[in-house]
Amino acid sequence: MKFWASLGFVAALAAHAAPAQNVEQATCESPLQRKAWHTLTRTEKSLYIEAEKCLMSLPSKLHQATARTRFDDFQMTHVLETPNVHFVGAFLPFHRFYMYAHEVALRTECNYAGAQPYWDESLDAGNFSTSIILDPESGFGGNGVGKNNCIADGPFKSYVNAIGPGQVNTDHCIDREVTDCASQAASLDIVNACLKKATFQDMWNCIEGGPHGAGHGGIGGQMLNVFSSPGDPLFYLHHTWLDKLWWDWQSQNLNIRLTEIGGTNQGSPFLSFNGTFPPFPPIGGNFTFPPFPGGPNGTIPGFPGNGSCSPFGGFPGGFPTGPPSSPSKIEDTVPVNIAGDPGNVTTLGHVLTVHGSIPDATISDVMNIQGSLLCYKYA
């Protein structure tokens, strides 16, 4: 089993707030209404799933690597951008932009009239296996079965994915290994704790470490691969929920939080391990973690191992060459060359790209979901 291990450890590395910059005033007059999957009618669910299947049937426009379909295009974009958009200040802004690009494709290329729905995972925390979102008739199909954990029912059971796993592109099924234990980090208590954080850095670390890890770890399989996880259509509902959580936090103080950004542009050193994160070792030894929400004695449960949900315990396998050393301060990292940022600190001028599915934008452009670029709201 390939563990995502997205508990936000490196996200907490020496992230500094960026200077405030101007964000354009809102020009959104008729925002799309993004709704929770649990609240959609059966017809609304069917229309969304048919639109996603449409992307799976359309030929690739970007023609990157082995991508054959528009659905593959989005997955390949995530593979290419992974080192720049995880455990960094751009994590939430990039995925907001990425969800928007996916929504635009559904609406402009597949005649979908609705908005991108989200999965309110707090309703299913600790019980992903019984969620209505995995219903084979009105949802995304259930758990994986057999040797390769391929999904065997639902609308996507026959889709052959050409991207991944990780950075190795081979034809494979959409696989899942649903784990109720890991899904506990999507609990309402943890979500509310994240929303109470006073700064962008603390909120982002909390979301990437808790609810984000719960969605990927709770579904497992394809969703647990840091590079190729968008190969499971549930990815888009999961990250749209995370976007809602960020907006809920921003909405508590829009005057300040529409311009509050920060963090490092240097991604996790674990991304060098070709496709998946290796398991993290127990606390102690020669590997130290910077503070992150929950902590070893905190409220965020660890991913399961040997039937246990104890934090940091029981990760199978080990590091291929021993654990890498974590930089202790931002100056010890090697900056990524990001357009719009002169150094290794994430700013509002930081350029986001989805490789041509829609034009590039800056973080400033996506700070307001009802601004000059984005135009939606959450129920």
Results as ranks from 00 to 15, higher is better:
residue 2 K to P: 15
residue 12 A to F: 04
residue 14 A to D: 15
residue 15 A to P: 15
residue 19 P to M: 11
residue 24 E to Q: 12
residue 25 Q to D: 13
residue 29 E to Y: 06
residue 32 L to A: 11
residue 33 Q to N: 15
residue 34 R to N: 09
residue 36 A to E: 13
residue 42 R to P: 03
residue 48 Y to A: 03
residue 55 L to Y: 00
residue 60 S to H: 01
residue 61 K to C: 07
residue 62 L to P: 02
residue 68 R to I: 05
residue 70 R to L: 11
residue 70 R to P: 05
residue 74 F to Q: 05
residue 75 Q to D: 07
residue 77 T to G: 08
residue 78 H to R: 09
residue 78 H to T: 03
residue 83 P to D: 00
residue 85 V to A: 03
residue 87 F to D: 12
residue 87 F to V: 12
residue 89 G to K: 06
residue 90 A to T: 06
residue 91 F to N: 13
residue 91 F to Q: 11
residue 92 L to Y: 01
residue 93 P to R: 01
residue 94 F to H: 15
residue 96 R to W: 05
residue 98 Y to F: 09
residue 98 Y to V: 01
residue 101 A to T: 07
residue 104 V to F: 07
residue 110 C to V: 09
residue 110 C to T: 09
residue 111 N to T: 11
residue 114 G to Q: 05
residue 116 Q to K: 10
residue 118 Y to T: 06
residue 125 A to L: 06
residue 126 G to I: 02
residue 130 T to D: 13
residue 132 I to V: 14
residue 133 I to W: 01
residue 134 L to V: 01
residue 136 P to H: 03
residue 138 S to R: 10
residue 139 G to S: 07
residue 140 F to G: 06
residue 149 N to V: 02
residue 152 A to N: 05
residue 160 V to Q: 15
residue 164 G to D: 13
residue 165 P to R: 10
residue 166 G to V: 05
residue 168 V to E: 15
residue 172 H to E: 03
residue 179 T to F: 01
residue 180 D to S: 04
residue 183 S to E: 04
residue 187 S to M: 09
residue 187 S to D: 11
residue 188 L to K: 12
residue 192 N to I: 02
residue 195 L to E: 08
residue 195 L to Q: 03
residue 197 K to R: 14
residue 202 D to T: 14
residue 204 W to L: 15
residue 207 I to E: 14
residue 210 G to K: 14
residue 211 P to T: 14
residue 214 A to K: 10
residue 222 Q to S: 14
residue 223 M to A: 09
residue 224 L to I: 06
residue 226 V to C: 07
residue 230 P to M: 03
residue 242 L to T: 08
residue 244 K to E: 11
residue 245 L to Q: 08
residue 248 D to C: 04
residue 252 Q to Y: 04
residue 254 L to Y: 00
residue 256 I to Q: 15
residue 258 L to F: 10
residue 259 T to R: 15
residue 260 E to P: 12
residue 260 E to K: 09
residue 262 G to M: 09
residue 264 T to M: 02
residue 267 G to Y: 00
residue 281 P to K: 02
residue 284 G to I: 03
residue 287 F to N: 01
residue 290 P to R: 04
residue 296 P to E: 12
residue 298 G to I: 09
residue 301 P to M: 12
residue 301 P to L: 11
residue 302 G to W: 00
residue 302 G to V: 07
residue 303 F to T: 02
residue 304 P to L: 00
residue 306 N to D: 13
residue 313 G to E: 09
residue 318 G to Y: 00
residue 319 F to K: 02
residue 320 P to M: 08
residue 321 T to H: 06
residue 330 I to M: 10
residue 335 P to L: 05
residue 335 P to F: 09
residue 338 I to E: 06
residue 341 D to W: 12
residue 344 N to F: 01
residue 347 T to C: 06
residue 347 T to V: 12
residue 350 H to C: 06
residue 357 S to F: 00
residue 357 S to V: 09
residue 365 D to H: 11
residue 366 V to H: 04
residue 377 K to G: 14
